[in-house]
Every structure is written in C-alpha cells, then in structure tokens.
Design a protein around this nucleic acid. Structure first.
Lengths: 146, 146
DNA sequence: CACAATTAAATTGCACGCAATCTAAATGCA
DNA sequence: TGCATTTAGATTGCGTGCAATTTAATTGTG
C-alpha cells in the first residue's frame, strides 16, 4: 500500500501545470523575443519602472544568481538599462527602454487568451490563483522554519 | 488600465507554487541525494519497474533531452540501470537498483509531510490537484492546436 | 529485397534556478 | 575614526527543460 502514485501527487500537478503555462506562453512570447521569466520581469517593471535587482527578486522569488544574467540578456537585447544607484553604489537600478514599454500593449491581450484556453470562468481562475498563493505561503513558511 | 498586475496572474501563482514545492522537497530529497525531477522518475518506476525512456517521458511530460542526462546521473549514482531492449535496440529500459527501491519506504512519509505543511485538508488538496490537471490538459490542448 | 519513412535515444546549445562563494559598498559600534 | 559586520550584486558550478539536430534501428512500401 502506498500513497506515492504519480497521479495523486499535488506537487506533480503543480509542476506539470507550470510547464504547461510556459508551453502555452512560448509562441506568444516568442513573437516578442521573450522567455517566460523575462516576461515576469517586464510585468514587475510595467507596474513600477526603475526597481533594484533585489526588489524584482523579492516579487518574483528569484535571487541574483538567476536575475543578474537574465537582466544582462535583456540589456543586450535593448529592453532595459542597468545602472548603479547614486546614493548606494551596491544597488543596481533596472529601467525599461522604449521597446520593452511598447510590448506592454501586446501583452495586454495575453491574460484573455489564457482564460480562453483554460476553459475556466474568471471566478474559477481567481479562486484557483488565491488557493495557490495561500499554498505557496504555507509551504514557504514551513520550509523557512526547518 | 491593465490586467497585467503580477499578483493577478494565475500563471505566476502556478510558477511560484511549483518553486515552493521544490524548496519544500529539497531538504527531504537532499537527505537521499536526489533532486526533485529524479524523485519524479522514481515515482514512475516505483509504480512499474523497467520502463523505457519515452514511457517515463510521457508520464512526466519530459523529453529525451532532459531525461537522458538525468538518467545517466542516476545510473552513475547506482540508482538505476539503463540497457537496450532485446526486441528493439532503439529503446532503452530503465530498471531500479536496490538503493532506489529502499528509498521508497522513506518517500512514503513525504505526502503526509506535505499535507501537514500545506495546512489544507486532504479533500482540499484533492480538489486543487484535479483542477490543476484539468487546467494543464486544457492549456496543452490549446497549445497543440496552434 | 531495396530503400524511403518513421521512431527512440542521444547530442548540442541555450536559458533558467539556486546553492555557495566572492567583491565591493555601506553601516554600526567601540 | 577604525574596523568588523552587513548588505547588494556578481560569479561559479551544477542540474534541469526544451528546441533542433543527429544517429541508429525498425517499419512500411513498391
């Protein structure tokens, strides 16, 4: 007797759903030359331009080991600038460049396309989203306590 | 007006929950010397030993580009064997070795620990799991159709 | 039977994630 | 002020994921 069947694992359901999202977004983002994590960075900067690497990392739950090379690639693509803050040279401020700002209007259509593909109502999606955020917080609280 | 706020994105809720799971499992699996994807391979093989690379890949939604090096690492660790099938030399059969079999009894405790950490009832978790599987199937159906 | 088409893995190349470590700047406290 | 501590990013190393290509074995068809 075991409770280890793959199909019964919530962790695998989340893991595979996350990959399904990146598969779904790949053609949409590929048209903009973006990867999914790069898109997440733009979501953060579209809300407020000119944030530090660590501020971006707190929102996305990513560290500098992931963000530094990712932001350098976005800089090389002409999407953002990276410059040291005047008042604190340890910090690096990330600002959007016009091409990245222009992408926002294209991205406006993505959520609606996701809803259509999901065959879920907006309410169902909202409940699911809240449930997942709560689960993540619970798991991280336990992980941090260990 | 925009619907692009990070906190409103279902995709990010799923993405970050998936990372929270790997963070949660890391100390548990680390004691066994396993990564999370390697653990998934064991879940598949514990259900049925001696599967091909593509059979494993179908269940986990991973391709040979991911699985071949992963399985080679597991082979190097003495967890599995990889040998060409007699009846079809294109296929590679993966079999568990005793150390990997012994890990199953340790892993039996993981789901319960996850439930405890999640602060969710078994029923809530089951509903969430089913919802995510359905979402994944809908997304993949749309992605494949494009 | 010959040979094109298909199939299963493996390989290559690139972009994450993240632990561990390093560097440089800012802070705090004697 | 002097110097240890802390903090922000960068770097290194390793293990995924996945697209694209390659290799080798099998299948299908004339």
């Amino acid at each position: 007797m075991t409770n280890l069947k793959l199909d019964q694992q919530l962790c695998f359901a989340v893991y595979s759903a996350a990959h399904a999202f990146t598969r779904f977004y790949r053609p949409l983002l590929g048209a903009l030359g973006l990867t999914y994590p790069q898109y997440l960075v733009l979501l953060v900067l579209w809300e407020r331009d000119g944030q530090t690497v660590s501020a971006i990392g707190e929102k996305l739950l990513l560290d500098s080991g992931t963000l530094t090379p990712l932001l350098k690639r976005m800089e090389a693509m002409g999407l953002v600038t990276r410059k040291r803050a005047d008042h604190d040279e340890r910090q690096v401020l990330v600002h959007l460049l016009p091409p990245a700002m222009a992408m926002k209007s294209v991205a406006e259509g993505f959520p609606q396309q996701m809803v259509a593909a999901s065959s879920c109502s907006g309410e169902e999606i909202d409940i699911l989203r809240r449930t997942l955020v709560g689960l993540r917080e619970q798991l991280d609280a336990t992980t941090a306590a260990a």
